[in-house]
Design a protein around this nucleic acid. Structure first.
Lengths: 234, 234
DNA sequence: CGCCGACTTCTTGTCGACAAATAAAATACA
DNA sequence: TGTATTTTATTTGTCGACAAGAAGTCGGCG
């Protein structure tokens, strides 16, 4: 009908365009609005956002740096595929980072971190209540990211955020096929983890994070091995 | 002979400029040729490499993505500082990644990985023999990176490489002040680790990596705490 | 009928130029 | 003389245009 974003050119500020494009594309990729393999056309994006190709390009370089898009030299660029064959490496790193970040949060968190964490947990519980899969996935990632922040190790934070991002795509795929049935159990497990963090019980935090992570991983692995023939390129 | 980079415009190939600038700047930063805080001027680099600002900019965006340079919006961009106050987070992550990657290498390496690893180890031994600190630091990073590659977990590989990069700057600072006295001990420890990997002895690989890493960390921490007043901005 | 080569087209990579934002310098004023 | 304000200068952010590289297309030839 009408061009979605052609006429609105709302006088962006100087440095804001890149960030906006980056975050929007990022969310669209992670929510599978742009499924793996989708072609990314620079001029098309330039038209859509009403700006030149230069800032678009910068956003794409950043996304490529995080492995969210793949760029073939001189040829096309597209949303990166999910490597189903090596999912175990992803799960291995995910479980380890769950443990390490939760452990460090119990050790190093400050008083002002807990309200932030609890706020995320509240949003997560609300999403589960509303059976909103997309919101539940996003708030789950935000919650664990906040816990990692409280651990105050930028290297772990960085890797964990990347894993959580990739996890958003995989979880979306999982709950999509699973009929979006969202268990209350995760909310309770989160509560226990937060309590352990607040009590500064490092070993308990580690153990709870390990169980929490391994349980999720087990569910998803079961699902993906059941649909073995899902080795489509997608 | 000729001016280093003024008249020679050797017809680079289309996509090669960015990579070249990226790698060169990266090495100059990690070898402290460009010390922390050095200003990065785009036009100056453009003249130096005989190209436009666009590819320079792309290389800088990538470097910023890895935390090697900091960019103040609309103002200057400079080599990122080393955060001496939070070195413990760096060491914590470094030790963990040493362990995990070596462990996985023992578990998942293939026959063709070992010659590569041994080649790096030979170069490392040669650098120690020659008492060449810069080469020793670089080959050490390359060796451990190769071990991580044999572990075949891209997430760990990515974080570990970032840690090894940052480590190159810190080690450079360390050996610089230490009179570049290079111990033979590291060569032997590497040999033991490689042997454990080859024997697929996972627990031994883990233990050796842990001891190796903690010993290095201890040395550097002692050094830095002795020079406590090194809390200069540098 | 099928294979090989020139051509077209489409996307990316690079360029030079201009505009905005900020810091530094210069000026005016109390 | 010290401070506020204007001016200048420098660096970044953005733009439109052009050229190179690669896939697809079409025609020619065996």
């Amino acid at each position: 009908m009408d061009d979605v974003a052609s006429t609105s050119v709302p006088e962006r500020k100087r440095g804001s365009g890149v960030k906006m494009v980056y975050e929007l594309l990022r969310d669209e990729i992670l929510d599978l609005v742009l499924p793996p393999g989708s072609p990314i056309d620079e001029v098309q994006l330039a038209e859509r956002f009403g700006m030149s190709r230069t800032p678009i390009r910068e956003a794409l370089v950043r996304l490529a740096g995080e492995g969210l898009i793949d760029t073939l030299p001189n040829r096309s660029t597209m949303v990166s595929n999910i490597d189903f064959l090596n999912l175990h490496t992803f799960f291995d790193a995910l479980v380890l980072m769950y443990r390490v970040t939760t452990r460090l949060a119990a050790q190093y968190h400050r008083a002002e971190d807990l309200p932030v964490i609890r706020a995320h947990q509240a949003r997560f519980a609300a999403a589960v209540e509303a059976q909103d899969a997309l919101a539940m996935i996003a708030t789950n990632a935000a919650l664990h990211s906040a816990i990692a922040e409280a651990g105050r190790n930028p290297y772990y934070i960085s890797l964990f955020n990347r894993l959580l991002s990739e996890g958003r795509r995989i979880l979306r795929l999982y709950y999509q096929s699973y009929g979006d049935r969202l268990p209350q159990q995760f909310v309770d497990e989160h509560e226990d983890m937060i309590a352990a963090i607040e009590a500064r019980d490092i070993e308990a935090a580690d153990r709870l994070a390990k169980e929490h992570a391994e349980q999720i991983v087990r569910q998803i692995q079961t699902f993906f091995s059941r649909n073995e023939r899902l080795d489509m390129k997608l």
